[in-house]
């Protein structure tokens, strides 16, 4: 008879394991295979001008954030004010306008302000595919040599900044 009393425990563990596996799938936890590797090669136009091409070389030279955004992405709108704040504090932010409409994106920036020093227009999402973007927003950190240091999936806000990014900047100032 006593063995029956163990049944609830077993059922509970089955549920707990299930919940655990669900957490493991959380997109915010995605590690990137690209960390420690140079930013992949590409040749895409600037958002502001459809005849000026950019490549990976244009990104290196200073510690910079690379922010993947799009006008169709609601969360990007929420993230935007904080990027503005970072930019006004002298942090270099490069934008990747991901699977978007050029006109809409320019209008978006005119309305909300532009925190980006330069924006890569990735209409087809080919660069996004190379760096393994799973959605927007996403933010990468690259160093002077263009090596990817960190990746953040989801919104970048004050808390994430302090926890995951700010120490890279304080190191470089020392």
């Amino acid at each position: 008879m006593r063995i029956i009393l163990f049944a609830p425990l077993m059922v509970f563990f089955a549920i707990a394991i299930l919940l655990w596996s669900a957490l493991e799938r959380e997109p915010g936890k995605l590690p990137s295979a690209l960390i420690g590797k140079p930013f992949p090669e590409f040749s895409l136009t600037k958002l502001s001008a459809h005849n000026q091409y950019l490549s990976a070389e244009d990104l290196s030279g200073a510690l910079a954030l690379i922010n993947v955004w799009a006008t169709w992405c609601y969360a990007c709108k929420l993230e935007h004010p904080y990027l503005q704040k970072l930019a006004s504090n002298g942090i270099k932010i490069i934008g990747i306008n991901y699977k978007d409409n050029r006109k809409a994106a320019i209008a978006w920036l005119e309305r909300l302000g532009n925190p980006y020093s330069v924006i890569i227009f990735d209409e087809e999402g080919s660069l996004g595919l190379d760096i393994g973007v799973s959605g927007a927003p996403e933010t990468f950190l690259i160093d002077k040599q263009g090596i990817i240091l960190h990746r953040r999936v989801g919104i970048l806000d004050q808390k994430v900044w302090e926890k995951e990014f700010s120490h890279y900047y304080s190191d470089s100032w020392e």
């Binding site: 009393l5 609830p8 425990l9 919940l19």
Partner: peptide, 28 residues
């Protein structure tokens, strides 16, 4: 998700140990 992990751990410890106690001491 980080908070999820904490709550899940807490849940497992609290409920798991209680159900184990129930299995051992429960009235039969």
């Amino acid at each position: 998700p980080e908070r999820g992990i904490y709550i899940l751990l807490f849940l497992s410890i609290v409920v798991g140990s209680t159900l184990a106690l129930f299995a051992i001491r429960g009235p039969v």
